[in-house]
Design a protein around this nucleic acid. Sequence first.
DNA 1: TTGAAAGCGCTAACAT
DNA 2: ATGTTAGCGCTTTCAA
Lengths: 328, 328
Amino acid sequence: MNRVGIQDVARHAGVSTATVSYIINNKKSVSAETRKRVERSIKELGYKPNAIAQSFKTGKKNLIAFIVPDIANNFFSTLIEEIEGVLASRHYKLMILNTKETKIREIESINAVSSGIVDGIILASTMDSYSEIKSILPQSIPTILIDRELKDCPADSITVNCHDAVCRGVEDLIGKGHRKIGYITGLMHISTTVERLDAYKETMQQHGLCDPALIRIGDSMSHCVKGHLDSLIAAGCTAVVITNNVMATEAMLQMLDEGIRPGRDIEILGFRDSDQAQYGLQHMDLIIQPTKELGKVAGRRILDRISDPAGLQQRIELQAIFMPREKT
Amino acid sequence: MNRVGIQDVARHAGVSTATVSYIINNKKSVSAETRKRVERSIKELGYKPNAIAQSFKTGKKNLIAFIVPDIANNFFSTLIEEIEGVLASRHYKLMILNTKETKIREIESINAVSSGIVDGIILASTMDSYSEIKSILPQSIPTILIDRELKDCPADSITVNCHDAVCRGVEDLIGKGHRKIGYITGLMHISTTVERLDAYKETMQQHGLCDPALIRIGDSMSHCVKGHLDSLIAAGCTAVVITNNVMATEAMLQMLDEGIRPGRDIEILGFRDSDQAQYGLQHMDLIIQPTKELGKVAGRRILDRISDPAGLQQRIELQAIFMPREKT
DNA sequence: TTGAAAGCGCTAACAT
DNA sequence: ATGTTAGCGCTTTCAA
């Protein structure tokens, strides 16, 4: 049960601990012969460097934390996947902390992580504002915001601009003759929700079509869609904008089940991720987020930020695109 | 940028580092006055104990690794949620490692984790057999298998027995007069897949109905269902067993989209998790896995195992239940 | 090319 | 109740 340490290896191979360390990290030139001997000892003894001791000594953990609102959401699990890929190529691991869109769990997660166990933090925050976490977010740990912005936060951010795509989508609906276009939001305290809603209002206003009675406040996670959709249909909407992937999929299931034919009985403008091959979504107009790209860029950015902690703040913005449906 | 250490606090409060340590961990009795003074110093200096140094010294990391095949699968994200809950109550954190059902990523994950950064490992393995990971699975770290068993593995395991529920479900189908009952499997190298398939074959055999031509090999993740379902229908099946939650949901979407009415045109026996409120699933007969319970039990078990590393191996088996559909 | 030895920041046994 | 101090297992400087 006693773990074998670098001492044991050194003794077994008849060298100093320094030499073993050099070999583990191939830091200095070591004669081929010694290297061979030490490597044999390592294998024989089954030696594994104690990662905690290494981190303690060097200060490097090769670990990034991703604080994420909902791992079951395809958007975020795609993000995780992509970030992991980028990090793995640089020998970093990703630690995932799931907040379930609650502030308390976000705070707990930030606290857990600010004890110095990670080299960097990627945060998709569920907070209303930066002030709510300003005091607990450790300035000593490189941090970047992903997907959702926090006003006045000095950290780097990587976001997706959906404003233009939403405008285009709504324009398209209007162009097809729709006048009563309903809208189901995500969680209202999140920056992306506000951005998208503003784009919708703006466009509707430009055509003199804006009607607050056609807006429903949703959450991005669970089962709020049914009621909203029914009530918008009852209100006479011929088209509905549903502003995230989870809700769009749910709406799809529900409509199919009730015999409402999206694309015929009602027009839906939904959201999906870059590579989401969700069955049924082909009946909707879609706004497609560059989710994979978002993850990749975030992965690269946190790594760069770690190697240059003092660099200037960066705000990176990717663009979503509007794609009309294929099928009826 | 220089992190403040326990030394700084001690100096600032005019006490020894030991006293500060006692207060942080409230280990020994400290006079109310000293405590107050030290706590003020901690606040003033913004001191946060270096978690790595603590772990280094004590050997405790308060971290459990969960190596999981697919975080986007509701079954596993529910598991994560429940395990997190149990661990949080004992001040443990969960580190999630997503293998995407690939062996290579499982091996990488095990290696990453066996450098001693966690106190315990929960593994939902995607391997064919224990021999594939026997040499890399660290015996010094408490490990439990969840959901999927690995023959001959000496670790504890927590699984869900679906055998009886599948038998009952298939019996029920037969009782309703179905004779050609198709079957779509999960990944064939996984223990749960085999268990379920055996139960199906067994039951069909008992009624002289077993026909290998009615079995389709699926994977549990992606988009294999459509083809299989179509071909089973073409083969004359009046009922189909779909043996995990992801595939069941996908089949649902597809059938609705194609105007096939589950529960009327075709009978489906699907799977879902304890609390999965997926729209549309009410048209299927269902086998319900006690997913939340599974997570809770696993969380408790790993904690117990950590406090008693030498205890006898435990194999815990929960039972799935069969539930006929509500709606037509 | 190799080795001796000084810590990294903290905990806890032991002493006072 | 509080302080002194010896490490935990490793890396790395400096010397040989």
